[in-house]
Amino acid sequence: MIEARSITKRYGDFTAIEDITLTVGPSSIYGLAGYNGAGKTTLIKTLAGIYKPESGGAYIDGQNTFDNNTVRDRLFYVPDELFFLPYATMDTMAKFYRGYYPDFSAKRYEKLKKVFELNGSKRLRSFSKGMKRQAEIIFALSVKPTVILLDESFDGLDPQKRSIVKELLLEYIAESEVSILISSHNLSELSDVSDHIGLIKGKALIVDSPTDDISERYRRFCVVFDKEINADIFENIDRKGLKIIGKGAQLIASEDLENIRDSLNQMNPVSVEENTLSLEEIFLFEMEDSTYDFSEFFNEE
């Protein structure tokens, strides 16, 4: 189990993440989403014990990870920017990791190489970006860690390899009590594999919820009236997004859904339609601070 307890990390005067708390339980995959620069990598590096937070801490099974080799032999971090030894082949890198992680399974490594159809004696420098990622994921699974931190690890993978990776991760957590945290921009990908989703915005974790619950929590209401309406009539409704088009209105809400439903019905609409949101939509909804009027964007006159 890996935990972030009220982590705040600053770079000089700049606060990258503030007071973030999350837990990735055993046999769980946590999907971490957020804009570029939101602080995902900072959070992951802090969890990996690379960065020392200004306050709070990262813990594996209750022990702080910073400069703590007693817990980090159970952790493997797959960074966004991969590191390989100069002139190394996959096999030499495997040897390197086997040295540091005595539990490294050569058998698993060979099997995974076959699954991904990678040549272990070829220099990693000649590998494509996706192949390098596959190699790193192979190393991560071969060292048999109980905590895996994957930073943008689906980037550059073709759909087939992406699917293999997902299946492997799901198999791995099913087989052992592993905690996996994956960061990605691709919400649909995260929803496929994660049982828990976290969303970082404005240095803080604004969503931290089981994947199944998250869709249930958000509703889109489409209301149609028999006459043109204005926004004032929705003033007393606790909603997050509101779009009015002629006689129709669309609003999104995540809390107190029952009350909202009742309030809308009391307005005597022609119809009220209620839908769940996809993760992508929730992401966009939560992330949108300012909305551009793109229809005016290219109008330079």
Binding site: K45, A48, N68, R72, F83, Y101
Partner: peptide, 10 residues
């Protein structure tokens, strides 16, 4: 540092 400082070595 991503690799060396996340491994099981102080």
């Amino acid at each position: 540092t991503n690799v060396f400082l996340s491994m099981n070595i102080k």
